[in-house]
Amino acid sequence: MRLRRLAIRIVSIRPPRRAGLLATLALFVATGAYGVQRGGHGPALNASLLALGDQAANAAGLKVTGVRLTGNRQMSHEQILEVAGIRPDSSVLFFDADLARERLKANPWLSDATVQKLYPDQIMISVVEREPFALWQRDGRIHVISADGKVIVDHLDARFQHLPLIVGKGAEERAREIVGLLGDHPDVAKSVRAAVLVAERRWTLVLKNGIDVRLPDADLDRAMVDLAKLDAERRIMTRDVAIIDLRVPDRVSVRLTEDAMKAHEAALKERERERARRRALQGQRT
């Protein structure tokens, strides 16, 4: 009986006027939306709708006529506008400041950005750029990095060839450490061509004349003081050596170059022959 009464009520319901037309339109809209989504035309449709909105807003006097930009030194005005998505026909009304800020912060040159809309026709952008800090080489490629190890430029830019060179996996994360150490010891730093991180654990300094200076895992400042003292007393960084090993505290090991080793061996043999001649002469006299 309950089912019968419910059925009678449903049958007796009268649909509103033009319900069929509205349902048909809804079906068409749903079908169109589904087709756009399945066909991947969503971005193009959004761009078209945004362009129409900008045209209408511009006609009402809300066109972007000026952008106040501060904080940029490395990036040009045009580059900032392109990243932020500001076009010649953009309107203040439909400009998405939050999206522009996120796009700017995603750029490797920028660490932060602020974007504000100033009605009726101005946009204000303030950016904080990362400072080029060092050159980082890994797998044969050189990158320009900031102090926090962020890659700013993924190739060698001639503008930054003067920056210190660090090499190896993980070296970018410890850039502050080694660059700061060299800055504290300028007498040593002026002879350094590159700092190589070995096994992500310790540093080896490659001097401009090819000598490798092996630093310890810890107490790097002490090792640099010892190196500077040795160079001041014995000019060790300009001698004919291949490796200066400072890894053991209170002891310095030096390995000669191949040519220096041959010369040293030849000198030892000559000394031995001279001693043999002297012994022979003393034997003849006796």
Results as ranks from 00 to 15, higher is better:
G149T: 10
V36A: 14
D96R: 14
A97D: 14
G35C: 06
R239P: 04
V248F: 12
K262N: 12
E131N: 11
I86Q: 03
Q55E: 10
R4Y: 02
L227R: 08
R201W: 00
H77R: 13
E258H: 04
L81R: 10
L181V: 05
A19S: 13
I80E: 02
L256F: 10
G35N: 01
R101L: 07
G140F: 09
Q161D: 09
R214L: 09
L21T: 09
D184M: 07
K63N: 05
A171N: 06
R87W: 01
D240A: 08
V225S: 09
R279C: 01
A147E: 15
T70F: 05
F28G: 03
S48N: 07
R222K: 15
R103A: 14
L6V: 11
E265Y: 09
H162A: 14
R101Q: 15
H185F: 15
D221V: 05
A134G: 09
G42D: 03
R234Q: 13
P43S: 09
I178Y: 06
G149C: 07
R201A: 06
A56N: 03
I145T: 10
D221I: 01
H162G: 10
D148W: 08
A56K: 08
R9S: 06
D184E: 15
S91H: 02
S111M: 10
V128K: 11
R251M: 10
V127C: 11
F160G: 03
R247G: 03
D112C: 06
G71F: 01
M237D: 03
D187G: 04
G180L: 05
K190T: 11
R201N: 07
L62Y: 15
A228S: 15
V179I: 13
E82K: 12
D240C: 08
R138T: 05
L22D: 10
T65L: 11
V36H: 01
A276R: 14
H77A: 07
G183S: 10
W203D: 04
R285N: 08
G53P: 00
T24V: 13
R9V: 07
P15M: 03
Q284H: 06
L268C: 00
H162D: 15
A158Q: 13
V198A: 02
Q79V: 02
